[in-house]
Design a protein around this nucleic acid. Structure first.
Lengths: 352, 352
DNA sequence: TTGTACGCGTTATCAC
DNA sequence: GTGATAACGCGTACAA
């Protein structure tokens, strides 16, 4: 008890008069031992207080069961929930996760990847945006990205186009005169850009008057507040007496706008409807619950890991058949109708 | 290029006509080689495209540089920020983190610990509450807990007592007639219990009229809303015409109460003051910014890792001196004065 | 300053 | 069913 050295297969072998091989088999293929001997070894394990050493196992069979994750931050609820869901797949796939926060430079992110490769991770999940997918595709292990530029690697993304389309549809159904989409300017290569397309297409297809406002509001209240204030005032002026349907592509800013409206009018005026994006906690916790387009984070996470595990398994076969083309999996979004749209609707059509 | 087998020290040794030892030294003690030879090896590394293998290194020297983390969830901002800060210490200490979400049973959590031990983690950070510290103290590696029962292990905690004291003090300074503390019933062993003590002590020491309400509001809007509604009505009735200072020990519920008040009165009435706990995003994003007691998550995280690393380093010495007693590090909280208290104060004493 | 030989704890390949 | 032996890739006395 409390002896310095760890108990190894050798010790157990000596103690039980078996060979190391047999001990190994006890763990990896127990049925190949006779029941009687299984029991003997089993007893010895507790008697000697054996602690398994998977590092040695890795060295011997090359399987680390490690997956690396690089995620931009955990500040946004979207990311922390995603990480949570990814980690939860341990219950299913039994892969362990080495996690890095990659909100730094490209250089440091490459360092993270090198570190992960040094630990012989079998696959890598990337949510950060810094390293282009061409470069990722050159790595010697399977890669899956989530909601980022993914041209040359496998990915799992939300159907952002449908999300934008749904948001516009919801606002249109409530009889808005003008549909406004507020978004930060983004590359056409990132999936989130689809929201804009979906929104615009719906409006065009249905002959809706609409406007797209591309603006960066920054990451703090302090920067966002004045910008959103003037946005609100502009819209109120430009579209006075018109029913304004605003689709803001994140809940945080939607909430901010809602609060500004509340402070100005004491409530959400009847000629304002709001739809956010993400279904983050604030959309439920706001003064008035915010309608929003939610991503199915659990499914995104699960599919990402599944897609990765599939490829990792393929590589372990004697004749691995690598993918010819990167696979891009699409998960539909979910529309949450809440007070910032339904309150009005309920008033207009109480029967519905 | 694309050859199946990995390049090893042997390959480099052959290629450069050095021995494996010299290659090893190049990595671990480069100054012991002459500059010229360092260059030769360096060139060979890129030529052969060597990828280091830390798994083999671990087996040889026993140092994994792994730290395990078990955290209850990432849904609460407090936990996700904590995890983020812990992971960020990679920049300082270069330890890698294996993360498990431990919101399950005691049994599954023990399994996580076994798995972590199998990967030879050098230390373990525990934020989940399921396994008592007596049991944790028997593990063969250093343990540090954060904000949980910690009698038999090292820990880092917020000075909850001071937090409760400060909250009461803030409300008292604003001339409240009655101070109310709302909290969920908790064991006296968990650090959070200190909030209650600090609050009560302040009130007693300063002869403030006060009431403590211990109630569980659950984890969803649906369960919390009716309970908080009746709480609000009870308080409004019991303390009509009195200035009510309410210290709710989490921001989510504080926000909910604020919203209820807003819906009822259209604003936060002058006879209501609110202080929350955690400084979570909602406290800033609410209709009216919520005064709150914040934990210094960055410091908690850093100190936890530092405390752990210290002990892990101690163990690597030839004559390790284990701690006689568990160390409990205390971090002061930070008071954020915001609109739910200062708005009133500003009105009463505009000069201040 | 560099090399030899062995150990780390497991798995894989044979052979029996 | 079970055992001997050689990997796996690197670190480290010890020797030179």
């Amino acid at each position: 008890m409390g002896s310095k050295k760890n108990v190894t297969f050798s010790d157990i072998a000596k103690y039980t008069n078996f060979s190391k091989t047999t001990i190994s088999r006890y763990f990896n293929n127990p049925d190949s031992l006779k029941l009687e001997n299984q029991q003997i070894i089993s007893d010895a394990l507790v008697k000697l207080n054996y602690q398994e050493n998977k590092v040695a196992r890795i060295l011997a069979n090359g399987k680390t069961e490690f997956i690396g994750i690089i995620i931009p931050d955990l500040y946004h609820h979207y990311y922390s929930e995603m990480l949570s869901q990814i980690l939860s797949t341990y219950e299913t796939f039994h892969y362990k996760f080495l996690v890095f926060i990659g909100d730094k430079s490209e250089k440091s992110e490459r360092l993270y990847i090198q570190e992960l490769l040094a630990y012989k991770i079998e696959g890598l999940i990337i949510l950060s945006h810094t390293i282009p997918s061409v470069e990722l595709s050159t790595l010697p292990i399977p890669i899956v990205t989530i909601e980022r530029e993914d041209k040359f690697v496998c990915s799992v993304n939300t159907d952002n186009y449908m999300g934008g389309y749904q948001a516009a549809g919801l606002l249109a159904r409530h009889g808005c005169d003008i549909l406004i989409h507020v978004n930060s300017p983004s590359s056409e290569l990132v999936p989130a850009h689809g929201r804009l397309l979906g929104f615009s297409d719906f409006c065009r297809e249905h002959g809706m008057k609409h406007q797209v406002i591309l603006q960066e509001f920054g990451h703090t209240h302090e920067t966002a507040l004045p910008l959103l204030t003037s946005l609100m005032e502009d819209l109120a002026r430009d579209y006075a007496y018109q029913k304004k349907g605003v689709f803001i592509s994140n809940d945080t800013d939607a909430n901010l706008l809602l609060n500004l409206l509340f402070r100005k009018y004491g409530t959400l005026p009847d000629d304002w409807l709001l739809v956010g994006f993400d279904n983050s906690p604030i959309s439920r916790e706001a003064v008035m619950s915010i309608s929003t387009i939610g991503q199915q984070v659990d499914k995104l996470a699960y599919e990402a890991v599944r897609l990765l595990v599939e490829q990792m398994n393929e590589r372990k076969k004697r004749n691995p058949v690598p993918l010819k083309e990167p696979v891009h999996k699409i998960i539909p979004p979910v529309l949450f109708r809440r007070d910032t749209t339904e309150k009005h609707g309920a008033r207009c059509r109480p029967a519905n």
